[in-house]
Design a protein around this nucleic acid. Structure first.
Length: 288
DNA sequence: CGTCCCACCTGATTGC
DNA sequence: TGCAATCAGGTGGGAC
């Protein structure tokens, strides 16, 4: 379910609700695949910690925690929440019934609960460790642990860096867009929507696109992602927080989920194919 | 290493 | 109507 705009919406929503709260206790379900770090480690790291912030990196929600007593950077820990396909992160009052497939509950000092719910269990919870200060060539010393994700941020990458990502790749451009170690955060919906808006067919070899096409693609991708964030993401099923917040970007989908319907631009039926094992939608007339 | 394909899960929808 | 097949917004690992 969640790609960059949905994860950003959720992270912002949770941040606004729980920033500054202390985690009083932690419960975990014991379903092994959900926990990328051992449950005991997660539980130990979170219990008693204060939630400093909740933000998005790629498709991952990063909860930064501090320990009472020591205020140095070294005491910061990051709790990573990846929602997979069906994960949800809810902030609920304790009297709201627990949904099925709840795999973790962080009970806050004010008794509200942060609940991780995930029917398909493709989501993952982990603690991010980072070595003490790291040095990089372009940066000075960094004393805060910082999860940076597997790839580059689509919203801030420069044109030059964007073009370089695809150079020499034989894989279809759509598969490259979905590769999280290149750009992180782009998923199936926004890959299709960006390629449509850029006029590029999903099966085009990534390395055979022109600089001008990639410039269009970067702009299209950023436009679509920003617009979706503004609308709270796409809700094909619903997601988000305890208030049942939904996104509305799906209203503006031009190709995703519109197989056989007419293209909004030229009327040609939208075609649905499989690229890289994923359902892929495009207009055979508007995309070259 | 780059690329392809499947397994990992449950639930909703499609199709016979 | 009923039941089986198919599909779903994601990733990680193994094969080549």
């Amino acid at each position: 379910m969640p790609e960059l705009p949905e994860v950003e919406t959720i992270a912002n929503g949770v941040h606004a609700r729980v920033q500054g709260q202390r985690i009083a206790s932690v419960w975990t379900s014991g379903k092994p695949q959900t926990f990328k770090s051992p449950e005991a480690e997660i539980s130990d790291a979170l219990t008693g910690a204060m939630i400093e912030s909740v933000r998005r990196v790629g498709k991952t929600i990063v909860m930064t925690l501090t320990r009472a007593g020591s205020k140095t950077d070294r005491s910061r820990i990051e709790f990573l929440i990846h929602l997979g396909m069906t994960g949800r992160l809810l902030v609920s009052s304790p009297d709201v019934p627990q949904p099925p497939h709840t795999h973790a509950i962080l009970t806050l000092a004010d008794h509200r609960e942060i609940r991780f719910v995930d029917p398909r269990r493709f989501g993952r919870l982990s603690i991010h460790h980072s070595a003490a200060p790291q040095r990089t060539t372009e940066n000075v010393e960094r004393s805060t642990p910082h999860y940076t994700g597997p790839g580059r941020e689509p919203l801030t990458i420069s044109l030059g860096d964007f073009v370089a990502l695809f150079r020499g790749r034989k894989t279809p451009i759509k598969a490259a867009l979905l590769n999280q170690s290149l750009l992180h955060g782009v998923g199936n919906i926004y890959a299709d929507e960006a390629l449509f808006r850029a006029g590029i067919r999903p099966r085009r070899q990534a390395g055979r696109t022109t600089r001008a096409e990639l410039a269009r693609l970067r702009t299209a991708l950023q436009t679509v992602l920003k617009r979706a964030i503004k609308l709270g993401g796409s809700s094909v099923s619903d997601y988000v927080d305890a208030d049942g917040m939904r996104g509305y970007f799906q209203i503006e989908h031009k190709v995703y989920g519109r197989g056989r319907e007419p293209c909004t631009n030229c009327g040609t039926p939208i075609r649905k194919i499989v690229v890289g094992g994923r359902g892929t939608h495009f207009c055979p007339t508007c995309q070259k």
